[in-house]
């Protein structure tokens, strides 16, 4: 098997043998469920949709993605297994991508666990699946960006606590940039709005898949993962 897949598989299995994965899934389902049912029981809403869920989810993802990514490389450094990993015939980028894929798979499982919500909605009325599929795709893209940033932060420390706090800070900043600049004009505001994840998420979740948005997520993932790979290989310079 490809070394990337082998590393990803080990990482994913490790997160399910420890309690981390279960805690992340349980917390996300609790909060997502709360959001979902509040919307359903809200008397003012007459149409069947998951709009509240998808407007709030990016914010919660900024908390949850760091919880998934915090240990990826920090734990390898703390337990000294990184020294072994770095001396195997595997490139640093393969290690980083393997870790990232494991985290992304876990996130996909977490998001997949919320699928009973729209399914139960569909069973009681006429549900427009378009925005829902768009919303899930948008969350996956957004989650990839957050997780990649988390991998980079995790490569910089051996302390998981530091990793989760710094990643949370970065993701939160990426998420709120756009809102801070939303009432201003000018080049700086434009740039801030482009760097921010929120606008891009809204586009995708409306079902509009624009190459600019894809390029945006791809760039964040690529830059962060390359950064992590450089951090790992700096020892060899």
């Amino acid at each position: 098997m490809n070394p990337i897949l082998s590393i990803a598989k080990r990482e994913l299995r490790a997160s399910f043998t420890s309690v981390t994965a279960y805690i992340v899934i349980a917390l996300f389902l609790l909060i997502a469920g709360g959001l979902f049912w509040l919307e359903i029981f809200n008397a003012a809403s007459t149409e069947l949709s998951m709009r509240t869920f998808f407007t709030r989810a990016p914010f919660f993802l900024a908390f949850f993605a760091p919880a998934i990514s915090m240990g990826l490389l920090a734990e390898e450094q703390r337990s000294k297994t990184l020294e072994l990993l770095m001396t195997l015939p595997v490139t640093d980028m393969q290690v980083v991508i393997g870790k990232f894929l494991a985290a992304l798979t876990l996130l996909a499982i977490v998001l997949g666990a919320t699928l009973p919500y729209p399914i139960s909605l569909a069973s009681i009325g006429n549900l427009d699946w378009g925005p829902i599929i768009g919303g899930y795709v948008g969350l996956l893209f957004l989650g990839s960006a957050y997780l990649a940033v988390g991998v980079l932060v995790s490569s910089l420390t051996r302390d998981q606590m530091v990793a989760i706090l710094v990643s949370f800070f970065c993701c939160f900043l990426l998420n709120t940039f756009g809102e801070l600049a939303s009432h201003t004009e000018g080049t700086v505001a434009e740039v801030l709005r482009f760097i921010s994840t929120s606008g891009h998420f809204e586009n995708v979740s409306r079902g509009v898949i624009d190459t600019r948005d894809l390029l945006y997520y791809f760039t964040i993932v690529l830059l962060s993962l390359s950064g992590a790979s450089i951090v790992l290989s700096r020892r060899r310079w």
Partner: peptide, 25 residues
């Protein structure tokens, strides 16, 4: 290579650990 601090994944079963390392090697 066996480093000074033995690099082990504590949560893994011995066979799986060796199998994983053999694969990566």
């Amino acid at each position: 290579y066996l480093p000074e601090s033995v690099p082990l994944y504590d949560q893994m079963v011995v066979f799986d650990y060796l199998d994983h390392l053999a694969e990566l090697r």
